[in-house]
Amino acid sequence: MSNHPIVKMEQVSFKYEREWVVKDVNLTIRQGQFLGLVGPNGSGKSTLIKLMLGLAKPDRGSITLYDRPIKNFSNWQEIGFVSQKANSFNSGFPATVLEVVKAGLVSRIGTFKFFNKKHKDKAMQALHTVEMEDYAHSNIGELSGGQQQRVFIARALVSDPSLLILDEPTVGVDAKHVTEFYDLLGRLNKEQGITLLMVTHDIGTITEHATHVVCMNKTVHFHGNTEEYKEFNDEDLNRLYGHSVQQLTHNHDHDEVNPS
């Protein structure tokens, strides 16, 4: 089963109003990978995630999840998602940590069925994994940014996903906790075999932890393992991030597309 492609995107394009936000993206995520998705602001990283989760529909191209075309895919509990918005939820919301984590089981439980003791145990176990079980009965709004982030990871983990997608999860988390956070992700990847896709703009840190890196700016400019990425030299990086970003978008310079 290892190395099996669980997400496959082929020639995927998406436009917002008249502008292409994602263009001709080919990307395959294989089981067991810890994939870092990097790129400058507005490079379409978050949009790519939305497309992958079915929250947006591509204008062109095809997306396959676990060997099924996305529109026929229903096994959503396989995919855990920690959104960027998790940082900006309504912090006055009257809910305990446990209630928030249990909400991650909604797809697994199904309509017309209720939460029971088993679901509570499951949620406590997920909180244990992220070392937050002591806060189960605290109000979610009273926790620090880093603690909240862990709770949202527990919510994503509670349905036992095999793929965990995280969109900029370290924004608003202080440096010390960022290290702990990466350690946690490393454990999930190595010990529990969960495939990870993490969107970040912190290129330095992600290359220390991820097994693979994808660089994108509307289209994929690099996709390979971390070793190869280190050879993807500064000049390339500059081109991706620096002043030539303008040039890229205007010249339709997509020759670097790297079919995965």
């Binding site: 989760l53 079915g54 929250l55 998602f81 249990k102 909400a103 991650g104 909604v106 797809s107 919510r155």
Partner: peptide, 18 residues
């Protein structure tokens, strides 16, 4: 549970198949 998840996080509700 559907009303709760919709109130707390619409995006999460949507990927939960609600």
């Amino acid at each position: 549970k559907e009303l709760f998840v919709l109130s707390f996080d619409e995006e999460q509700a949507s990927i939960s198949g609600v």
